[in-house]
């Protein structure tokens, strides 16, 4: 069996006396789309915040590329290749697509003693990356606010991929989208998976998960009910598990 790029074992998390997670384990393998399903309040958000360094687990171990590690901050998660695309915080609407795409990692060139942003190169690489992802963009200087919800998610995904994400965590990328937009985002996810990147897809929509997922882990009231493999589970079973019943 392939070594997982990221493995979380027996993760527990308490907020004061409230148990948010207990004994959650998950193995994330390169080139696979791992769906994390669960109802609202099941602990999905807490779990991905632990994965992306926002929270520290109260108990349990995290392995990255086979080595035990701790993820201290969102920055250190990004540096080691764990990228998270949040549903509503993916982009800054008033800024251009180009400025958003490069935010925090702008390309600079030296003009005399000054370092200035290399706008030409930034634009060129952006357009190239968008094309690779199958996103048609008219103008790199158009503001992100003018993009549709699906396009925003896709641009944010493309950005994470370009900057070398090994594990891409997508927080409810499709939950606010219409049918057509959802289709676009799911296609983008499929492309990311083909590149050998591990995708963690968080959703409470079983249909969307079944469309792109290879593995399915269901969270319910802070506990996992096990991981199922594509083809060995169907809609009804997943839905049943999410509503709080045991896998049999």
């Amino acid at each position: 069996m392939e070594t997982p790029i990221m493995q979380l074992t027996d993760i527990g998390k308490h907020f004061c006396s409230i148990k948010a997670l207990s004994n959650v384990s998950i193995k994330i393998i390169q080139g696979e789309c791992h769906c994390l399903l669960g109802d609202n309040g099941a602990g999905k958000s807490t779990f991905i915040k632990i994965m992306s360094g926002v929270h520290q687990p109260t108990s349990g171990q995290i392995y990255f590329s086979g080595e035990m590690t701790t993820i201290e901050s969102p920055r250190s998660a990004i540096d080691s290749g764990i990228a998270t695309v949040y549903q509503d915080l993916a982009m800054i609407p008033l800024m251009s697509v180009m400025r958003n795409f490069w935010l925090g990692r702008e390309l600079v060139k030296n003009i005399g003693p000054f370092k200035i942003m290399d706008t030409k190169k930034c634009n060129a690489i952006l357009m190239q990356e968008m094309e690779k992802m199958g996103i048609s963009l008219h103008d790199p200087s158009q503001s992100v606010g003018t993009l549709s919800g699906g396009e925003k998610q896709s641009v944010a995904i493309a950005r994470a991929v370009y900057f070398g994400a090994k594990v891409l965590i997508l927080d409810e990328p499709t939950s606010a989208l219409g049918v057509y937009q959802t289709e676009k985002v799911l296609k983008t996810i499929a492309k990311v998976r083909e590149k050998g990147i591990a995708v963690v897809f968080i959703s409470h929509n079983v249909n969307h998960a079944l469309e792109v997922g290879d593995k399915f882990t269901v969270l319910c009231r802070g506990k996992t009910l096990g991981t199922a493999v594509r083809g060995k589970i169907d809609y009804a079973q997943l839905q049943y598990m999410m509503s709080g019943e045991k896998l049999n």
């Binding site: 990004i78 800054i92 925090g104 000054f114 370092k115």
Partner: peptide, 23 residues
């Protein structure tokens, strides 16, 4: 024309989103 300028826009545009990408 500088990356610092880009960060000024981002800090005012959405501080939380900017923090998530390391600004």
């Amino acid at each position: 024309y500088t990356r610092f300028g880009n960060w000024i826009f981002a800090s005012g545009g959405d501080a939380k989103a900017a923090r998530y990408v390391g600004v």
